[in-house]
Design a protein around this nucleic acid. Structure first.
Lengths: 331, 331
DNA sequence: CGGATTTTTGAATACGTATTCACAAGTAAA
DNA sequence: TTTACTTGTGAATACGTATTCAAAAATCCG
């Protein structure tokens, strides 16, 4: 490994001068700049970023803890987050939530030297929150949030649940199913509550049509099978994510149901894939064309770079909006 | 920031002893282990990984330069790679190839302190290869490879092209289209050559049916439109990746063609999504159930951890195998 | 108990860079 | 020419940890 000392020796200057050239300090003579630059090239010198970080206290490294990529929502957010961070000169360490045990991921993240952290994978009352606080680096949650607040970017999930219910009820549906994920995440909790409240208010809520799954394909399929196996089948289903909607549609088609003639489906997230003409999924999203991940990473980097200001919280709750497409219709 | 010195002071020992406890050195008394451990907890001490790396010369960090996630192939490989690396205790810095200009990505990677690198995004004669060599860290290419060799994991692309051609010709097709990506990547080059050679040998190769695209949805759509606009339309198409196949099927259906009755489609990669019953794509893959990314990262970590051995090259070229499903049929 | 041996410890140093500080050389003003 | 000021430079030090080396403490053995 060739160090700045080696460069210094070759250029006939001190290591300090090499360092100055590296950080283009104004106070170094033309002459020496040239000598040092040449020596660097000759030796194929690359500054050691570790040593730099040690003194500068900046790693230019962020971490992302994301939901799994088999959910297209996270495909989009991960792409946006990684690309934006790279554009801004940050490296991005990526981790994927693994069902159940995220401790090893958190352990890893906590032991790293990071400039910031962005994550979707946190439960509403996750004790990890305190630990993240203690890191004293900015972190933002996207999609999900924590009970204690912090920085987050989300959709108003409860309102979204209501919107879905209203849409389906407006179409004349009275037996409406719900398939969501774990209620200890803020997203599913909000969507669930919003949906149930509205259904209860305007028609009747049939608990047998409410299914909390782990969002896996198998679990969704099972939920659909159970639902459609009842005597009072639902005529519409609110799937709490587009990923769930896609799995559900799949199972329904397999069972011979037509979408939307026999069963209307409303998803949520407005994933690009669902916009596609082979799906044309009716879904709930927000207005901005930037996804939640992108918004989150923008905020994070802002927090990092304007850290001199009184760091105020970033709390964005976007208004949900219905994208009416072709998987829902009048009863 | 609380350092090992602070811990030392609090525990009433030297910094050396703290360091020893940290790396559970055998030569430290029970008594001191306890004192130090307690002090660590009291101060909520976390060792600085940067400082550690500076002396140990190990960062436990790898980089992945991947193709874009809108290609499901890379969704699978990225997931496998990141998860496997994390399991093995490595952090993974992720970058996505951006069309055209990868220099900023490479610049970033070259300046990092890495234990290893895995990448799919390299051209056959990419000059970056030499630079990567000069880093003196192990790196492996997956899916694509470089003319100069190095470590790689791939499918025998030429044989795969031949397999596709044979399959379609065996079914009675004589007008067979091809849609692939840039020929300066080893994957597309091999698939193209293998396909063309075989078609030329067994029937007639119509250059008008050969399309080199940038693999984007728009480009694929355009290729399909051109192809199907000719008087001698193809009755079958070999799409050089499943992603391309999916785009092509989409466009064809939109044009009113039935798959496979009107047009047979054979993809390549055997992506999980294409296996799904809503696609049932006939495709070409390999036998192992581990994807190329997973195989690549396993090799990489092996190279890193067994670096004492004479580091021999890892060159894996897997035999292609046809997965015959429901998008191809007899003419 | 005394010497030999082993275990445990801390001081010093290295890792590669950035930065402070003092000093040398050069320039401008007087 | 002297003084004051600017510019350019290198020596020294800091960052937080691991490791070497020598010394201190503890243990063993006869």
């Amino acid at each position: 490994m060739v160090s700045s000392k080696d460069v210094a020796k070759r250029a006939g200057v001190s290591q300090s001068t090499v360092s100055r050239v590296l950080n283009d300090s104004p106070s170094v003579s033309k002459d020496n700049i040239e000598k040092v630059t040449k020596a660097m090239k000759d030796l194929n010198y690359r500054p050691n970023s570790i040593a730099r970080s040690l003194v500068s206290k900046q790693t230019k490294t962020l971490a992302l803890i994301s939901g799994p990529l088999h959910n297209p929502f996270f495909v989009e957010t991960t792409t946006s987050i990684v690309n934006y961070a790279n554009e801004k000169g940050y490296k991005m360490n990526v981790f994927f939530e693994n069902m159940g045990d995220n401790m090893s991921v958190y352990e890893s993240v906590l032991s790293m030297q990071l400039d910031g952290l962005i994550l979707s994978s946190i439960f509403m009352d996750d004790p990890i929150y305190e630990e993240l606080q203690s890191l004293n680096i900015p972190f933002v949650m996207f999609n999900r949030k924590h009970n204690k607040g912090g920085n987050f970017v989300e959709i108003d999930n409860e309102k979204a649940g209501k919107t879905a219910a209203d849409h389906l009820i407006d179409l004349g549906h009275e037996k409406i199913g719900y398939i969501g994920g774990p209620l200890y995440t803020s997203t599913f909790y909000g969507r669930y509550i919003g949906f149930c409240k509205e259904v209860e208010k305007r028609t009747v809520l049939d608990q047998a049509l409410i299914h909390e799954t782990d969002t896996s394909e198998d679990a969704v399929r099972e939920a659909v099978l159970k639902m459609m196996g009842r005597k009072h089948k639902p005529t519409a289903i609110f799937a709490a994510t587009d990923a769930i909607a896609i799995f559900a549609i799949d199972t329904l088609k397999e069972l011979g149901y037509g979408i939307p003639e026999d069963v209307s489906i409303c998803g949520m997230d407005n994933v690009r894939m669902a916009r596609h003409h082979s799906f044309e999924l009716t879904t709930i999203g927000h207005k901005t064309d930037k996804n939640l991940g992108r918004l989150g990473i923008e905020h994070l980097i802002e927090l990092i770079e304007d850290s001199n200001d009184p760091k105020e919280q970033v709390r964005t709750t976007m208004d949900p909006i219905l994208y009416k497409r072709k998987t829902t219709c009048k009863l």
